[in-house]
Amino acid sequence: MASAATVWDGRRPEQSWLSRKLDDRRVLAALFMLPVAALLLTFLSYPLGLGVWLGFTDTRIGRDGIWIGLENYTYLFEDPVFWLSVFNTIVYTVLATILKFGLGLWLALLLNHHLPFKSLIRAIVLLPWIVPTVLSAIAFWWIYDPQFSIISYVLRGIGIIDTNIDFLGEPWNARLSLIAANVWRGIPFVAISLLAGLQTISPSLYEAAMIDGATAWERFVHVTVPMLMPILAVVLTFSVLFTFTDFQLVYAITRGGPNNATHLMATLAFQRAIPGGYLGEGAAIAVAMIPFLVASTIFSYVALARRKWQQGGSDD
């Protein structure tokens, strides 16, 4: 009778091979990670690998290249424009990052106080970050225009200067002008991120410090800074990466001029690879950015994320 088949015999039914595999947590984990791995391999590893490969070839746009070993790198090693772009990139990144963090932290501390219309002010602070980079670049291009600069116009109007400021025609003026534009654009990201960090600090720590007689400066140094350090490390890492690889601001405002004085490694790589047509050399410049990026990431992340220091211990 059919009922005999439905009697449970006390044994688990035989599992298929697939079921057994899917019950294995390692297999399941690997399976779940597969889509992400595929995306990363396709859109990150492959272009990176291709870029590294192109740097060892003489590929031009429209024509395949051949392996030329380190020739692109040895040429760049003796190329003063390349070294100028390295210098510019480092100056740009260091100065802009210091200013963004100094001013961003200051702004975050201000916004952390109880202000009227606090939410509205915070939203307004984010505006420079929200505006598309190329639009803010065009606005700065006008602000720095040698003939029509609003800054020169105002300063002339109140009698501080006689002739317009040559913001973009003189190398150091141009570099500092671009840094100012980058700082204006980058402050909101730093300020809002640090503000989030500030709000995670327990008020009881400040109360305890006050009971111990700590001054405002001592509270800042011994409570705020150490507690803020983990988020500071992350924000600094991102900020350095964004600044080091900046392209749009420079390309829209100066295109690397005057006399290549404002070329960053990213803009020089683009100019040589795409308009210049020399993909191999452009790729080599782009690849040359990687050691700098890795070094700055390691510095900002490892150096600032020392847990003992954050917790008030010594730097052993």
Partner: peptide, 14 residues
């Protein structure tokens, strides 16, 4: 005129 070192294509028209 000062500033021509930073002129881009639209600058002289303006």
């Amino acid at each position: 005129i000062p500033g021509t070192l930073s002129w881009l294509d639209p600058s002289n028209n303006k």
